[in-house]
């Protein structure tokens, strides 16, 4: 039996001036699933996940996250929902004036009580850092870390609140093939350890091959194909084949 959907996007439309980025786009993410969204640069993949977490307001359509329509939520309700949805930014978005410890502590200040923070912060930080294998960097500044390490720390910060859903925006962009593969395996490990559902935005076919249970192809702002990685790889459709060539 198919698991319950945790994200449902229906007929989403988003344009920037004359540029129609998403046109009646629909997709759903099910519990425990790793869904990859594949598309060319500028095809609206990042816009889609930013709409899902309401960093960008959509023009039309419905987005339901964990059974809550995000367009109708108040700011406080949205903040509470965002605690359950982790977001790994393409640029990592680590606060460069803070140490690794402070970066990981930051999301806790809003979502944990003072009592919880006093007792559990250190343990939570160390556990998140251990998950990504970088406990020794706890007092380092982001500028002292390599690109791959920064990506891992950003992932640790995403994990610290134990989100039910994780949105990955181009998790392997700008990394060498070896580090990219490590990050891809890390995504799979995280999904298995926390049973989180994930949307992975990427055009890195190796990453998608390793991480995804299902792939949605976003072409011209619409869902062009929705299938497993293997099924799409064997497709004879020219527009699909060009991604695998």
């Amino acid at each position: 039996m198919e698991n319950a959907p945790v994200i449902v996007v229906k007929n989403l439309h988003k344009s920037f001036g004359e540029n129609h980025v998403l046109r009646n786009f629909s997709v759903s993410l099910h519990s425990g699933e790793n869904l990859a969204i594949l598309g060319k640069s500028g095809s609206g993949k990042s816009v889609l996940i930013k709409c899902i977490i309401r960093l960008i307001e959509s023009d039309q359509g419905d987005i339901t996250v964990l059974n809550q329509n995000i367009d109708t939520l108040s700011n406080d309700e949205l903040d509470n929902l965002r605690a359950k949805v982790g977001f790994l930014f393409q640029s990592n978005a680590l606060y460069d004036s803070m140490t690794v410890r402070e970066n990981l502590e930051f999301p806790l200040r809003r979502h944990w009580s003072d009592e919880q923070r006093r007792k559990g912060t250190e343990t939570a930080i160390l556990e998140a850092l251990n998950d990504v294998g970088l406990a020794h960097t706890i007092d380092m500044m982001p500028s002292e870390l390599s690109g791959g390490m920064r990506k891992r720390i950003a992932l640790a910060r995403t994990l610290i609140l134990r989100p039910a859903i994780i949105l990955y925006d181009e998790p392997t962009t700008g990394l060498d093939p070896i580090t990219a593969r490590e990050i891809s395996h890390l995504i799979v490990n995280v999904q298995q350890k926390y049973n989180a559902s994930s949307i992975i935005i990427s055009h890195d076919m190796h990453c998608i091959g390793i991480t995804s249970n299902r792939v949605v192809m976003l072409i011209d702002g619409m869902c062009y194909a929705d299938n497993t990685y293997e099924a799409l790889r064997q497709s004879e459709d020219d527009r699909i084949k060009e991604f695998f060539d």
Binding site: K50, I53, L55, D79, N80, R82, A83, V85, F87, F89, Q90, S91, A93, L94, Y95, D96, F106, P107, R110, H111
Partner: peptide, 10 residues
């Protein structure tokens, strides 16, 4: 995107 990250973290 650090400001967006702050927004997302509540």
């Amino acid at each position: 995107e650090q400001i967006d990250a702050m927004d997302v973290s509540g």
